[in-house]
Amino acid sequence: MSTVPTGTNVESYRVIRNKHVGRYVAAVVTVLLLLSVVLAFARADIDWATVGEYLTAKSILTGFMVTIYLTVISMAIGIVLGILIAVMRLAHNPVVSWIAWLYVWFFRGTPVYLQLLLWFNIAIVFPRYGIPGIYEGRTVDIVTPIVAAILGLGLNQAAYTSEVVRGGILSVDRGQDEAAKALGLTGLSSMRTVVLPQAMRVILPPIGNETIGMLKTTSLASAIGATEILNEAQHIYLVNNLIIELLIVTAIWYLLAVSVLSIVQYYIERHFGRGHAAQTAGVGLLSRIQTVLGTSRRNP
């Protein structure tokens, strides 16, 4: 509390703003640290011309496409199956609910790396697939590294997505489902057109993060020989020994893809925020990108 003698004209006071010393100290320290990292890279024996050269090498580009492909397909499986499992988990039928619980228990309970190896070696357990006598074949013929990667990543993702979706569904006021049912909607159409669209507001931010996570987790597929970008980079540096250069090339592509995904996420979230204008209005794309990239200032 400041004491202002009665009768003084408050407007005549000069305002002295806080100096925010901490911010300047933090900025200086950060710049120094960054400089030292940059210097280390500059002094290290890194052939930057090679980095530029390999950035658009054909095998790197195809590897990157495989990475994107794995991400998209695995997330698609993860989301569709995840919604299904979430709805099953919330079903009145106890058997259905229990199956969903068991699924999540298994796929969240084991490392995704192990699941990839399991799928890749599934032929040991199931040497043949199909309906005997009608339609069958050798499992090793269909479970290629890419197929094993999609199965492993997609089914694992579904377990995580289902928990996110379940939380989203439970966050929607019960009155919404009741209103829909009172209007003559079945439980399923109420879920599809009333509850889920609203749950999306809660579901999408974590799904966006998980997509970004998936983009990077696909690199584990290199361990089972899926020819995604890291695998391609490893193939190259095992031959020419330009390890750091190729890892930098790979990092650049990952950073690029993550940045693009962050922008896409912004627009999707805005779409599903429909009817909640107050929460999204005024947050521009630029400030959003700054937030994502960690470059935003908290106060203008």
Partner: peptide, 30 residues
């Protein structure tokens, strides 16, 4: 249930739909 309309204490309008969509949703879907 279509023969019975219900109005709730807390309205329970669908917040993600416009007023018009709120009203046309069930007739169109159901």
């Amino acid at each position: 249930r279509r023969t019975m309309g219900m109005v709730f204490q807390r309205f329970n309008l669908f917040p993600h739909m416009t007023v018009l969509e709120n009203i046309t949703h069930a007739p169109r879907l159901v």
